[in-house]
Nucleic acid binder design. Structure first.
Lengths: 161, 161
DNA sequence: CTGACTGCAAACCCTTTGCAGACCG
DNA sequence: CGGTCTGCAAAGGGTTTGCAGTCAG
């Protein structure tokens, strides 16, 4: 599945501009890796991107793909699905519910919101397929951390997702 | 943060019943591990549970914690936050959007839904803290897989989340 | 009693890091 | 040309697995 040509072109330009502004070098590898992810609708993982660019660049290595992706993430040109590098967490609450996660301290709280029930979800994804489960994750700064932040360090890193 | 005593008791009974029905043995380790996760509101990871039960059971091992948690997951008594054992996926779509993921083939599609915008999120989590980002993930069986399932294998494993 | 379960240690997978050479600007 | 970037190989961290002894039913 491909992003259309015009949009891909726009994304490539945005990358070149951002790279220049950030003083980051535009290497062959970076251009190919960015073209690959910017042209896909699949949200691929590093391995998939690696295999996709290999035919065009036989000497590229997987670690360069990782380094490039995190660099793009740093420049706010890509984000990640799911939290970065977190171990699996388990949940014994059997009622349908959603999660609020503090990006600063990791505090996690359940909440129930009829607005986000199965029916609303099914409506939103009509055409894709059936709904088995749905899950809203809201990230923010919890009350406690807000106070701490106000008192001490106001430069909390932007954490996209 | 603790689940209240009555609810914990109910969960313990549900576990014992489910275990008996599934022909799974009720070992000391399993009871303690379940008690730990069922009594917490924090959605802990395996390591955290391990450390929490260690004082009560000095010889327990981390791999037993993992085995027990996946067994509980199998019995539909716990679920996981975030997908199980998946590598990080990257996303070059910069517009705010949500994801539909097919639990069978992994197909992932973006969708935008004004109903689930930041404002709706902020309302839902009022009291917990501020909102930095939010993300809806809907899991289901995509159109393509529905056909395949209807044709061949109708026993798709329930995949909670 | 006996098969299911545990603890141990080693394997595994994905991801990251240190280093010396290559290349962009 | 100089500092950044790459490729390689090896390390790292979380999770899983094979095995022999142990324990619930």
């Amino acid at each position: 599945m491909k992003v259309d040509e015009a949009e891909l072109g726009r994304r490539m330009e945005a990358f070149k501009k951002a790279a220049r502004e950030a003083g980051v070098k535009l290497t062959h590898q970076r251009l190919e890796i960015f073209r690959e992810i910017a042209g896909s609708l699949e949200h691929p993982d590093a391995e998939t991107i690696f295999k996709a660019v290999q035919p065009r660049m036989p000497t590229v290595s997987l670690d360069t793909v990782y380094r490039t992706l995190w660099m793009l993430n740093e420049l706010d040109l890509v984000s990640t699905l799911g939290p970065r590098r977190e171990s699996i967490r388990f949940d014994a609450n059997l009622r349908p519910h959603h999660h609020y996660v503090c990006v600063r301290c990791g505090l996690t709280r359940d909440f129930e919101a009829p607005v986000f029930d199965e029916q609303a979800m099914a409506g939103a994804v009509k055409g894709f397929g059936s709904v088995v489960a749905s899950q809203v994750e809201v990230r923010g700064i919890c009350e406690n951390c807000s106070k701490a932040v106000a008192a001490a360090d106001t430069s909390v890193r932007h954490q996209p997702r």
